[in-house]
Deep mutational scan, measured.
Amino acid sequence: NITNLCPFDEVFNATRFASVYAWNRKRISNCVADYSVLYNFAPFFAFKCYGVSPTKLNDLCFTNVYADSFVIRGNEVSQIAPGQTGNIADYNYKLPDDFTGCVIAWNSNKLDSKVGGNYNYLYRLFRKSNLKPFERDISTEIYQAGNKPCNGVAGFNCYFPLRSYGFRPTYGVGHQPYRVVVLSFELLHAPATVCGPKKST
């Protein structure tokens, strides 16, 4: 009989979020998941679920829940969905086509923008091939755009693969920082350890 609540607040209220190319993952297990707390949290810009209804989450049990978190621009949030393409979905964070879970995003301009620009948040701009679902690539190898080998030196046709967002408070909404948490639900042939409040007695 599990009684402790799942530590969703640790994920959602973290002081610093990860850059999207180096997205953070927390495994959540052996706890009671009260999703209504999240669902009623006012400032969400997006709360979209795939393969599961957000209002039914509290009735369900899962083997594991993974909480992935990172920061992207407002106009990139739409790429955090199954079957998407674009710089983020291709080179930074890719969801599987059969994704079961929820994508939760909110504007973090007050936290993550600075006058003069916040350059701490990076994304991958160049990559030889697209990421596989949930693949994480933190390499900083110089990207070779031409035929000539770069030998690890940036220059003509040789690019550092990461780019900084440089968030400023005055940017338009599409270019403002958004914090994103992706909850993915794993249902294995194993005992369920993460259940909603109704199922955990």
Rank of each mutant, 00 (worst) to 15 (best):
N1K: 09
N1R: 08
N1Y: 06
I2D: 13
T3Q: 10
T3F: 05
T3W: 04
N4C: 08
L5N: 12
L5G: 10
F8G: 03
V11T: 04
N13G: 07
T15Y: 00
R16G: 07
F17S: 04
S19P: 14
Y21H: 10
A22R: 11
W23F: 10
W23C: 04
N24D: 12
N24F: 01
N24I: 04
N24G: 07
R25M: 02
K26S: 07
R27D: 09
I28A: 04
S29I: 07
C31E: 07
A33W: 13
D34V: 01
L38G: 01
N40H: 12
A42M: 10
P43Y: 08
P43N: 08
F45Q: 15
F45G: 15
F47I: 10
K48T: 10
C49P: 00
C49V: 00
C49A: 00
G51A: 04
S53G: 07
S53N: 15
P54D: 07
P54V: 13
P54Y: 12
P54R: 13
T55M: 12
T55I: 08
K56R: 13
L57S: 04
N58D: 11
D59L: 05
D59H: 10
T63Q: 10
V65L: 11
S69P: 00
F70R: 01
F70G: 02
I72A: 04
V77F: 05
A81P: 02
G83P: 01
Q84D: 03
T85F: 05
T85K: 14
T85Q: 10
G86H: 02
G86D: 02
I88D: 02
I88W: 01
D90H: 06
Y93I: 03
K94L: 00
P96H: 01
D97Y: 07
F99P: 00
C102V: 01
I104L: 10
I104N: 00
K110G: 13
K110D: 14
L111I: 12
L111V: 14
D112F: 00
S113I: 04
S113M: 06
V115T: 14
V115L: 12
G116A: 11
G116L: 09
Y119N: 14
L122Y: 15
Y123F: 10
L125V: 15
N130F: 08
K132G: 09
K132D: 09
P133G: 07
F134K: 06
R136S: 06
D137Y: 00
D137F: 01
I138K: 11
S139K: 09
T140Q: 10
I142G: 08
Q144T: 10
N147M: 11
K148M: 11
N151Q: 13
G152M: 08
G152C: 07
G152Y: 07
G155A: 10
F156S: 15
N157Y: 08
Y159M: 13
F160D: 14
P161T: 07
L162G: 01
R163F: 08
R163Y: 09
G166M: 09
G166N: 14
H175R: 10
H175Q: 15
Q176M: 06
Y178K: 02
R179T: 04
V180M: 04
V182I: 06
L183G: 00
F185G: 03
E186I: 00
L187R: 13
L187W: 11
L187V: 12
L188C: 14
H189S: 15
T193D: 13
V194T: 11
V194F: 09
C195A: 11
K199V: 15
K199W: 14
T201C: 14
